[in-house]
Write a protein that binds this DNA or RNA. Sequence first.
RNA 1: GGAGGAAUGGGUGAGUGGUUGAAACCGGCGGUCUUGAAAACCGCUGUACGGGGAACCGUACCGGGGGUUCGAAUCCCUCUUCCUCCGCCA
Length: 428
Amino acid sequence: MLDLAYLRENVNVAHDRLASRGFSLDTETFQRLDGERKNIIVELERLRQVSKKGSEELAKLAREVKDISEKRNQLKAVSQQIKDKEEALRTVEEKVFQFVSTIPNLPDPAVPIGLTDEQNVEVRRVGELPSFDFEPKAHWDLCPPLGILDLERATKITGSRFPLLAGAGARLERALINFMLDIHTKEHGYKEIVPPFMANSNSLFGTSNLPKFEEDLFKVRDTDYYLIPTAEVPVTNIYRDDILDGQRLPIKFAAYSPCFRSEAGSYGKDVRGIFRQHQFNKVELVKFTRPEDSNAELESLVGDAEEILKRLKLAYRVVIHSTGDMSFAASKSYDIEVWLPGQNAYREVSSCSNFDAFQARRANIKYRPRAGEKVRFVHTLNGSGLAVGRTWIAIVENYQQKDGTVAVPGALQPYVDGQTVIRPESVI
RNA sequence: GGAGGAAUGGGUGAGUGGUUGAAACCGGCGGUCUUGAAAACCGCUGUACGGGGAACCGUACCGGGGGUUCGAAUCCCUCUUCCUCCGCCA
């Protein structure tokens, strides 16, 4: 949510900055609604003052045992006028709210201008691409014979786009979760969180998944609960409606969770294998920072996520999103893309964003810089550290060997009882 | 699932219809005192919106929503959350 006061003062600047991300701000509608709202408030406050003063006078008359019936009738009329104005105010405020809550965040000045991912800018490449003396396979061809991934049976349980891992494949998934959490909690200073895996509509509004993106979510029938699309939702909302002590900032949380996404509108995209799923595991990093620190904290957040790939010796690149490719709430975003030999391409394993005060305003998360000072909105950030299923794909594709087996990266071996190679095992 | 109780400012906690935006205490800020600190004492100490150059002024907010009334933290209805006891349960 953008700052209403900012919009009032700078509606044309906001219009131009939003145009750079492909959003057309209807400045006329905004100014009309905002003006209506203000007129009603001014009138309402005047009426309330009349009523308040009148009530005091009436109380005085009553104490003096004088006739109050005329005064009371007069005030009764005022009271009705107030009710009417309040109703009018509710109506217009609802309209303003609807209008403003569907405006995306303003891009940070450092973000490259462009309307699509083609204007994204590669920031750096790290690690060497693996070389094979054979044709490397994609994970959907490589894994079923090893007995670690069953693509057909998963569809029986639910339908398409659900993972079914087995044996060493299942253990590899679990090892990755522990590996990632250990590094972030023990070395990068994040506190581990196990959040609810469902969230209510207020929480989803706070992170901007509602109201605009409801079609991306799975909703639990007859309740106000949604399956979380990312741990960002519950973890960011830990502090909804809170005032934090400024001395505690930055606050850094790491949370493992399954993620559920309807993937509406991605039919035909990544249909093979388990790259794009309705359910996947992810370790998410979330930060609450002072406004002046958030861009530096974004850089270190990306670094924390990159560290996982470095330890696993996987080649990757970091890309900064153009204005048009950023998500609704972000002011600045980086993607980390890991090299997948089976697709001969870099593919996303992490997206790290600074939301500045956009989510904090929606979720009402404030901090007090120092005792006695005014409260301000925090800045929120988050990033995948990393998407576990996609890291799993990267490992099997990058560490595949000519005989169809998969080597286990050294950093991960302590998490799988020292196992060094995944060999074919009995299918489920 | 059944029966009770509760929700007030950063915290604890008074307040059952009319200067109550809200006592008191704790915490915080400023000051007096002190070589310095502590203690003691004094003052200040919520948020949002609107008006004004500013000191200030106005309005709203006592879990959410609705109602009664000229007037609600206070009365009524409803929802939510928390606590206690009983039952059930991984």
